[in-house]
Design a protein around this nucleic acid. Structure first.
Length: 626
RNA sequence: GCGCCCGUAGCUCAAGCGGUCAGAGCACCGGUCUUAAAAACCGGAUGGUACGGGUUCGAAUCCCGUCGGGCGUACCA
C-alpha cells in the first residue's frame, strides 16, 4: 500500500463527526440577532441526473469548497447551501425511457448525489437542501409568476416558436444550437402556438447598465452585453423569455382561463397548484398535439374562475426549469419558513451571494434570468438588492483529450472509482492540482498518484518526532504564498506552494509550530487528513474552525529586508550572483556588484559602457556599444 | 465571417504589468534494499517556450504575421 494510513477509516470517522456536530450548518437567526452577515458561498445547483456526478462537477465544487474553508478560517460565518434542480425535460425524458415516474427517479437520484457529494468532503449545509420539484418550493415559483403577471411582466402571445419534434415541446431560442434541439440534437421545426413569455426586454437597458457594478470576469460581462445587444449596430437582440413548456414535469403555470375574465392568475392563497397525482407513467407521456399531458386530466383542468366563479379551466403548460433556478438562492436561507418565500431578516443576513462559482454555459441564460427576476422583485419591493451575484467567477471546464467533458460528448469520467481506491482527499488534491480553477484544462488521471504520494509525505512528516526548532522565515513565506494563490483561485499553484513547504520541512526539520502551520495550510485541500493530523497534534476540534495562520509583522519585515541574491548580467546574460542587503539604491547595488571578484573575473577586463539595475533583482553591465 | 481565450519537458500544469542560463507533479533513467520484482528511499530536468519577423541592455512574457486548438456569436442554406 502506498498510503500508510487508513483513509477509509479516517474519512468516514470525520465525516460522521462533522455531520453529527453540524460543522457546516450556520444559525442564521443567531447571526441576525448579533447583526453579523453570513458569507454565502454558492455553487450553481445541479440537475440530479441518474448517472451522478462527473469529475467536472467535482473539480468545480472542490474549488468552491476551498474558498469556503479559507473564509471560515479567516473568521467568516460561511453559509454553503446545496440543492437540486430536479424539474425539467432531462429528468422527464430519462424517466420515460425507463417507464418510470420522474418523481420516483428524482427521489432516488437525490440520494446518489448526496452520497457522492459527501464523499469528497465538501462542506455543504445539508440542513437547507431542497429540490425544485418539492411542492414547498414550486409553490413559491408559482407565487413569483403571479407577482410578475400582476406587474405586467408575464403575458401570453401567439407566435411562431421553435418546436422539438422529439422532446414534443417548444424551446426557447437559446435552447437550440444550429437549428437543432440542444438536448437531443433533433432538427427543430417552427410552429405557431399560444405561449407564455416574461418581459425581459423591458429590463434590457438596466440589465446592461447593471453589469458595470458587478465584480465579474470581463469576458462574462462582455458575453451578456453582447447578448443583450444594446450596441449601436441595432437587432435588440434580447427577446422576451419563452417560459411555457408542453410537458408534465414542471411547475404548472398558475393561471385559470375564463371565457368571461380571460387569463386570471391563481390567487396566492390557493397556491400551490399541485401536479395531478398519476401512478402510471404512460399517462404523462407528451404527444404531437402541442398540448401538455396535463390537458388530459379533465378533473384537474376543470375549476372555477377566481374572479367570477363561473366554470373555467386551468392552464396546462408548465414552467421551464430556468424559471425554477432563477430564484433558488433566495430560498436557501429560509427553507424552514412556510408562510412566505423568504424572510426579510434571513435575506438581509445571507444575501446577496458572497461568492458565486458560475459555469460558462450559464452566462447568457441562468445568470441573466436570475438578474432579471431579482430586478423585477426589487422593483416590487420584495428583495432589498437588484443584483443577486455581485461577486462571480466562472470556472473552466475539464477536457478529455481536448474535448469538454459532457454527457452529450459521451466522454464522461466519474469520480467514484478514484474515491474508492484513493479516498476523497486524494481526489480533491489530484483534481485541484490539475489546473487553474478558472481556466479550461485537461483531465489527468495520473494526478491521483502524485496527490497520494504528497499526502503520504505529509503524514510521515507529521509522524516524525518534533525538531527543537524550525525555519520561521520559510513558514511565513509559505503562509503568504499559499494564501495569495488561494485568493487568486490558483489552487494548483497553492498546492505546489504547500509541496515546497513540505520539502523544506523535510530537509530542515519541523517543530510543533511548523507542523501545525502545515496542517492548517493543508486543511482547505485535504479536509479529512488535516482534521486527523490536527487532532494527533493535540489541536482542538475542528481544524476547520481554527484561525488561518497569520504572519507576524516582524517576520514580514524580516522577509522584506533580508539579504538577497542579485543576478549580475553581462550584456543580458547572467554571469554571477552577489549577495547584498535588500532595498539598496541603484548606485549602491552597482558598487556592491563591481566590488565582487567574481564579477571582475566575468568582465575579463571589459569595461561596462552602461549599467541597468532592477531593484533587489539584478544589475546588467552592458559592454557592447550600440 | 466577426469577437474573446490559448499554444511552455512524453503528459498535466507553473513562471507572464520584460529581469537571476525556464520550474513542479506524473512518466522516464540510474542507485540503495531484495533471490527477484513491487513498494519505499536517494539521485537525475530530459524543453529553450507552435513557427517567422520586430522592439529592447535583456523577450516564454510586448508588437506584427502565419499555423494549430477552444469558446461565443452572426449569416447563408
Amino acid at each position: 500500500m502506498a498510503v500508510p494510513y487508513d483513509f477509509r477509516e479516517i474519512e468516514s470517522r470525520w465525516q460522521h463527526r462533522w455531520d453529527t456536530d453540524g460543522l457546516y450548518e450556520v444559525d442564521l437567526e443567531r447571526l441576525a440577532a448579533t447583526g453579523r452577515k453570513a458569507f454565502t458561498n454558492l455553487a450553481e445547483f445541479p440537475y440530479p441526473s441518474a448517472e451522478g456526478l462527473h469529475v467536472g462537477h467535482v473539480f468545480k465544487w472542490c474549488g468552491l469548497d476551498v474558498i469556503g474553508r479559507l473564509r471560515r478560517m479567516q473568521g467568516e460565518a460561511v453559509f454553503q447551501p446545496i440543492g437540486f434542480d430536479s424539474f425539467g425535460i432531462n429528468a422527464e425524458n430519462y424517466a420515460m425511457t425507463r417507464g418510470e415516474h420522474p418523481a420516483r427517479l428524482i427521489a432516488r437520484t437525490r440520494q446518489t448525489f448526496r452520497k457522492q457529494l459527501s464523499s469528497v468532503g465538501i462542506g455543504w449545509d445539508w440542513s437547507r437542501a431542497f429540490a425544485t420539484s418539492d411542492s414547498a418550493y414550486y409553490r413559491w415559483t408559482q407565487w413569483i409568476f403571479v407577482k410578475l403577471m400582476r406587474a405586467g411582466l408575464a403575458y401570453q402571445d401567439e407566435a411562431p416558436v421553435t418546436w422539438c419534434p422529439k422532446c414534443l415541446t417548444v424551446l426557447a431560442r437559446e435552447q437550440t444550437e444550429d437549428e437543432c434541439c440542444e438536448r437531443c440534437g433533433t432538427a427543430v421545426t417552427e410552429r405557431v402556438l399560444r405561449q407564455w413569455f416574461l418581459r425581459t426586454t423591458r429590463y434590457a437597458s438596466r440589465l446592461d447598465a447593471g453589469l458595470a457594478t458587478l465584480d465579474w470576469p470581463e469576458s462574462a460581462k462582455a458575453k451578456q452585453r453582447n447578448w443583450i445587444g444594446l450596441q449601436p449596430d441595432g437587432s435588440m437582440r434580447l427577446h422576451d423569455w419563452l417560459v411555457s413548456r408542453q410537458r408534465f414535469w414542471g411547475a404548472p403555470i398558475p393561471v385559470i382561463h375564463c371565457d368571461r375574465c380571460g387569463a386570471v392568475p391563481v390567487p396566492e392563497n390557493q397556491l400551490p397548484v399541485l401536479l395531478p397525482e398519476v401512478e402510471d407513467p404512460a399517462l404523462i407521456r407528451p404527444d404531437q398535439s402541442g398540448k401538455s399531458p396535463l390537458a388530459r386530466f379533465d378533473e384537474w383542468v376543470a375549476t372555477e374562475c377566481p374572479a367570477c366563479a363561473l366554470p373555467a379551466s386551468r392552464e396546462t403548460d408548465v414552467l421551464d426549469t430556468f424559471v425554477d433556478s432563477s430564484w433558488y438562492f433566495l430560498r436557501y436561507p429560509s427553507t424552514d419558513i412556510e408562510g412566505e418565500p423568504w424572510s426579510a431578516r434571513r435575506t438581509a443576513t445571507a444575501l446577496p451571494v458572497g461568492f458565486y462559482a458560475g459555469g460558462p454555459e450559464h452566462v447568457t441564460r441562468h445568470h441573466l434570468y436570475a438578474r432579471f427576476v431579482t430586478m423585477a422583485l426589487y422593483d416590487l419591493g420584495l428583495v432589498p438588492f437588484e443584483e443577486p451575484f455581485p461577486h462571480m467567477r466562472v470556472g473552466g471546464f475539464v477536457r478529455m483529450g481536448g474535448v469538454k467533458i459532457s454527457k452529450s460528448k459521451g466522454n464522461v469520467i466519474r469520480p467514484d472509482d478514484a474515491v474508492k481506491t484513493h479516498g476523497g482527499d486524494v481526489v480533491r488534491v489530484g483534481l485541484l492540482f490539475s489546473g487553474r480553477w478558472d481556466a479550461d484544462h485537461d483531465y489527468e488521471a495520473n494526478g491521483f498518484v502524485g496527490a497520494e504520494r504528497f499526502l503520504t509525505r505529509v503524514w510521515k512528516l507529521i509522524s516524525r518526532p518534533d525538531s527543537p526548532n524550525s525555519d520561521t522565515d520559510a513558514m511565513g513565506r509559505a503562509v503568504l504564498r499559499v494564501t495569495e494563490q488561494i485568493e487568486a483561485l490558483a489552487f494548483n499553484v497553492a498546492i505546489a506552494r504547500v509541496m515546497e513547504f513540505v520539502g523544506e520541512l523535510e530537509k530542515a526539520g519541523a517543530d510543533r509550530a511548523a507542523k501545525r502551520t502545515l496542517v492548517l495550510l493543508l486543511a482547505p485541500f485535504a479536509p479529512y487528513l488535516a482534521e486527523e493530523l490536527w487532532s494527533q497534534l493535540g489541536g482542538a476540534f475542528s481544524v476547520h474552525t481554527q484561525p488561518w495562520p497569520s504572519v507576524h509583522d516582524e517576520t514580514r519585515r524580516r522577509l522584506a529586508s533580508a539579504d538577497i541574491e542579485v543576478a549580475v548580467q553581462i550584456d543580458g546574460r547572467t554571469r554571477a550572483r552577489v549577495t547584498m542587503a535588500g532595498g539598496l539604491t541603484p548606485e549602491e547595488m552597482e558598487r556592491a556588484v563591481l566590488a565582487s571578484p567574481a564579477v571582475a573575473d566575468a568582465l575579463d577586463g571589459k569595461r561596462p559602457s552602461r549599467v541597468v539595475t532592477v531593484r533587489d533583482r539584478l544589475v546588467n553591465l552592458v559592454t557592447t556599444v550600440q
